[in-house]
Simulated scan of single mutants.
Amino acid sequence: MRFEADTEIGADAERVWAVLVDVERWPEWTASVTRAERGEPGPLAVGATARLTQPKLRPAVWRVVELTEGREFTWASDVSGVHTRGEHRLLPLPDGRTRVDVAIDQAGPLAGLIGRLYGGLLRRYVRLEADGLRSRCERS
Rank of each mutant, 00 (worst) to 15 (best):
V100T: 09
S80L: 15
G112M: 09
E87T: 15
R116Y: 05
D105K: 13
Q106A: 15
R89G: 03
P92I: 01
I114P: 05
G81M: 12
I104P: 04
L93V: 06
R85S: 06
L113K: 06
T84C: 14
G81F: 06
G115R: 03
L117N: 07
A103K: 04
G112D: 10
R116K: 04
R99E: 00
L90N: 07
R99C: 00
H83V: 03
P109F: 15
L93N: 03
Q106L: 15
E87Q: 10
P109V: 09
G81Q: 10
H88S: 03
P92V: 02
L110D: 05
D101N: 00
L93E: 00
D101C: 01
A107P: 10
L117C: 07
P94G: 07
G96D: 02
A107R: 15
G86M: 15
R85W: 07
G81C: 07
L113E: 13
H83Y: 06
V100Q: 00
R99T: 08
R116L: 09
L117F: 09
L110P: 09
S80C: 06
E87P: 10
A103E: 00
R99V: 11
R85Y: 11
Q106K: 13
H88W: 02
R89Q: 06
G86A: 15
V100I: 07
V102S: 04
L90W: 07
I104Y: 11
E87K: 09
P109R: 14
G112H: 10
A111P: 14
P92N: 01
I104W: 05
L91G: 01
A111I: 04
T84K: 11
I104L: 14
H83G: 06
P94D: 05
P109C: 02
S80A: 15
H88G: 09
L117P: 04
L110R: 10
H88M: 07
R99M: 00
H83I: 05
G81P: 13
H83S: 12
H88A: 05
A111T: 09
R116A: 10
H83D: 06
I104C: 09
D105G: 12
G96C: 06
S80P: 05
A103Q: 02
G86Y: 14
D105C: 13
V100H: 01
R97A: 04
G108T: 06
I114H: 03
A111M: 11
P92Y: 01
A111Q: 10
G96K: 15
P109G: 11
G81L: 11
A103H: 02
T84P: 13
L110K: 13
V102T: 12
G96N: 08
Q106P: 15
L110F: 10
A111V: 08
R97P: 06
T98W: 04
R97G: 04
P92C: 03
R97Y: 01
L110C: 08
I104A: 13
R85H: 15
R97C: 01
T98P: 05
H88C: 08
R89N: 02
D105S: 14
S80M: 14
R85D: 08
V102L: 00
G112F: 05
L113R: 08
L93Y: 02
P109T: 05
A111C: 13
L117I: 03
A107T: 12
V82I: 14
L90F: 05
L113A: 10
T84V: 14
G81K: 12
P94M: 02
G108E: 07
R99Q: 02
D95Y: 14
E87N: 09
G86S: 15
D105P: 13
D105Q: 10
P92L: 02
A103G: 03
A107V: 11
